[in-house]
Every structure is written in structure tokens, then in C-alpha cells.
Amino acid sequence: MERILYLTHTEADGGLSKVALETLTSAVELSRQLSGSTLRLALWGGAIQTAADAVAGCGAEETLGVTGEEFADSRYASDAAAAEALVRAADATFVIAPASARLARTLPGVALRVGGRIDSHVVGMGAAGEGVQIQRWYYRQRMLATMTRSQRPWFVLVDPGLFETWNGEAGSATPRLVEVDLPTPYDRTRVVGIEAAKSQAQTIRPDADLLFVAGAGWTKKQADGQTHVKDAEELILGFLDSAQASLGGSKSMVEQSAEGEDVLSFMSHLNQVGQTGSTPRHAKGLATCCHGEEPHVVGWRFIHERRAINTDPNCGWAQSKADVLYVADAFALTAKVNELLRG
């Protein structure tokens, strides 16, 4: 019989993030499928009451909480102490948590402390008889494994974008507050701020329908023997603005930017998609001036509809990697697309 614990931190406003609410859906579904299982919630943060009330209708037996100023910031020492105390207090065998940056940093160490194991990048979860099976990717989205394990407690970090956002009834919860044994000192690390990668424009929009990828071709010499970087900047920013798209880049593109050449001023390492970049989730993706090599395309695993613009009809996208390849000059075509989008 699994004692399921849904575990997360709250946000600065005391509420829960989108991925936290999606993961709650997965936890509720799993507890319904697994006969004899129990579901508890555990929250920690500077404040937890808003979050506890918001999810009070999810059918959990109990809500546990850790709260206080010292738990407001995303910091390993205090987060790990809080999560450890909550897992122990719930006597959990199966811990489900959203894959936020904060939990991804915290939970592996917590799993070790409580003698458990952890799996991350979990994309599917279900009951199999008395037990649980999960699905997760290996080799950067190249292989999908279905697996189970015998060790408990078993922690899983659930990736974003897979489950519906939980939107059941709010209520009023009275969390059972759990004491935390904080290490001394617990605050050798101080969070001093949050920074955008580049100040000019917020180009990464995880909730956008469309991903626009700019490859190194945008900054290379064009048919007239010249580079046209300023034009490229205008066209790309114009497109992002009218299509409300999120901006991705190829490795070659972001590395040029990092090396300070005459390149797209708003492109940073955080925009990189692929093997050593991100694997964003969007309904559609449009690749421009990007060759579509395998280390780039592994980052497109969760982009459903894919189109590409490239002057080369034999580029990687033509090799069954895109649904449609437009063999065209991306400068001219993007200009026309922008005109139509604005019109």
C-alpha cells in the first residue's frame, strides 16, 4: 500500500506554480488508480496558507506544512531540511513533486537522506497492480523507458506540460505544522536577486504556442557577401512580438553571442535548444536559418508540429525531422510573414 505524498514549495506570493498544479493532478490520479493508497500534501515556503486553501478540495487525507521566513528563499540547506522533515512526518513511500528548478535542486539530496531513490524527467505514471510504473527519458530524449523500482521512499520529479492544471474546489485547510531541524548555520547561502538573462527583451515564453528558433545562418554572410545582423534582429523581434512566440537558438547561434561578435543582442545561452540546451514544450515550432542537426533536434522532442525555413533543400529538417520545409531566404520570408501577421 503506497503512502503517496505530494510535495512542493510555494511561490513568493504564497500560491502554487502551474507545474505544481499539474503535478497535483498526476498525484490525485495516481492515488485514485492505486487501490488502498493514501494521499497527503506537504507544502513549505515563506507562507503556505493560500496554497493549502487553494488545493483543499483535492481529496488528500491531510496537509502538512513548514512555514517561516527562513523557508521563503530557494536555498538548498533550508529547502532540504524542510523537505526531509515533511517526508519523514508523512512517513511517505512515494513522493511526487513538480520538476521546478528549486525541487530539482533539493530532492535528490533529500531522497538520499531518507534512504530512498529518485527519478527525474518523469513523463508518465500509472498503477500496475499494487505497484507503480513510471516513464522517463534517457539519453536526452532519445529513448523512453517504462520502469518500476523496489526501493522506498521513491521520489519522482514530474516534468511540466504533461497533466492538466488542477482546478478543483478551494476550501479551508489547517495544515499540520512540522518542526524542522535546521542546520547551523542554515544561511551560508543568501539569495540576492533574480536576473533576466539579457535585459533587452524577455524572449523565453514557456507558455507560448509557438517556438521560433533562430540558427546561426541569420548572422552569416548572405547572397550579397555581407552580413545583415541589424536586419536579422529587427525581423526576429518583430516576429516574436506579432506571433507572441518564444525564442530558441541553436548552439552555434548562442555561442557567437556569448563570444561577443556582432550578433543578436538579445540571444543568450538560456535560449539554446538541444543536447546541451533546453527541451521546451510548445504546440508548434518554426526553425529558421538552422541546419537541423541531430544534437539540435533532440531538443525538439516535445514540439508537436514542426516547420523550417532554410535555403538548403538538403538540410537536416528535410530528413524527416520537420513536417514542412520552406526552401527560401529567411530574411525575405520572415519580413513577409511579419507584414501579414501585423496586417
Binding site: 523512453l144 517504462t146 524527416s320 525531422k321 520537420a322 514542412v324 520545409l325 526552401v327 513577409k336
Partner: peptide
């Protein structure tokens, strides 16, 4: 750990290559 299945998902697409259309036609389609 028990691995029940490990698979490489099929992800081959039938790429339609649009080569002979005008820029205006391609833009409209996009």
C-alpha cells in the same frame, strides 16, 4: 530497478518540401 520497456519513439515525419512557391505563398501558408 526493473526496466519493463526501453524504446526509441518513432519520430520520422513525411517532410513536405516547398520549393517552387513564391515568398508570398509561403508566407500566407505559414
Amino acid at each position: 530497478v526493473e526496466f519493463l520497456e526501453v524504446e526509441v519513439p518513432k519520430q520520422r515525419r513525411n517532410t513536405r518540401v516547398v520549393e517552387d512557391a513564391s515568398v508570398d505563398e509561403m508566407a500566407r501558408e505559414i
